[in-house]
Design a protein around this nucleic acid. Sequence first.
DNA 1: AATGCAGTACCCCAAATGGGGGATTTCACA
DNA 2: TGTGAAATCCCCCATTTGGGGTACTGCATT
Lengths: 209, 209
Amino acid sequence: MKEIIHVAIVEDDDEIRQTLALIINGTPGYHCKHTFIDCESANKELPNLYVNVVLMDIELPGISGIDGIKQLKPQMPNTDFIMLTIKQDDNSIFDSLCAGASGYLMKDTPPSELLRSITEVYKGGSPMSTNIARKVIQSFQISTPPSPLSGRETEILQLLCKGMNYRSIAEQLYLSAHTVKSHIKNIYKKLHVNSRAEAVSKAIKDKLI
Amino acid sequence: MKEIIHVAIVEDDDEIRQTLALIINGTPGYHCKHTFIDCESANKELPNLYVNVVLMDIELPGISGIDGIKQLKPQMPNTDFIMLTIKQDDNSIFDSLCAGASGYLMKDTPPSELLRSITEVYKGGSPMSTNIARKVIQSFQISTPPSPLSGRETEILQLLCKGMNYRSIAEQLYLSAHTVKSHIKNIYKKLHVNSRAEAVSKAIKDKLI
DNA sequence: AATGCAGTACCCCAAATGGGGGATTTCACA
DNA sequence: TGTGAAATCCCCCATTTGGGGTACTGCATT
């Protein structure tokens, strides 16, 4: 036997909302009993309902879909949220994912794929269009300009990030504290900084370590 | 008319490699002329060939697929790499993406989906199984424990990260340097650190700022 | 009324830091 | 063959930092 997936919809456009509900209710294995026109009303009722998957519009009047998830997801940790959007080309993708969304689809996704996506989030996947996926993975591929630091300098910078002082670093690397200081002076020159704090900040932000 | 997508394969298992090539060459619109059994041989020839998409095994003898991409991708920025793997449950996903891969598929992906994925990377998408996508987006949803710092302390921590000293911070916030020092002492207590470098490191890594 | 936290301000002092030098060896690359 | 970068070590000295205090105000919660 096949389980029924309970779906809720938060979407302000009447036509889209009703069309989505029709698609879902017209397909065996899917059921949509609750729909909401904004986050305000969804926030009141949704946490008390048994729902597996929520389709959430991003551009909503009042509370945005992103802020809506931020409030709802903590109350419904076992419910998966799929964001629906018309525009793929902005960073609301990242805001949505950080807010707790599990999937991210275009509103013009064909019904068959929408239903497949609902099943997939329900089964623990994260459906998203491959274009959106590309944007997501590009965020991992931030081009790291080659570090200007030598091996020893990088090594020392790592220890600086742990909050170690000249002496501790010297002991750990079997060097004299003088040497460590020399290296750190060179690190400062190369990174164009003049304090530990700034060096550490730059090191972590620029992924030098 | 339909363009032909030129595919190369790097895979040590003879059977898999030949099967993949057969699938690709047996389908109109796809062509696979070059296959390699390891990264060592691929590194020599691939950069000089015209190839749109490379299917790269992750677990290769000698140079791994991940290290292979690190070397190849910079030389072939317009070529897309799809990683092939048998195990999805580790962080080679992230290493691959960071190294420059555009897609990430299981080796047991059915032929039709493999071909669709090749087309999708070629068109600028990033195909990956929804399970893998879930792992990727979970990396965005790191739960940030509420900061123990007060508003003023957070403000001062931000300035510390810029490398400012007591006096500069004091001037910027219209405080006495004594006050700034008091705040910083409290920051250290709350973060369980005892130096600027450590505080800055913790602040950035824990996203306190 | 009391307690505690945030924010402000001050004192003392030892230790660490940053900036300015200079010096040597080794090793690669031109 | 020499030039430079990397790595090691040393000196001096003014400034900054960190740790130990104390003290006052306001505000909220108890």
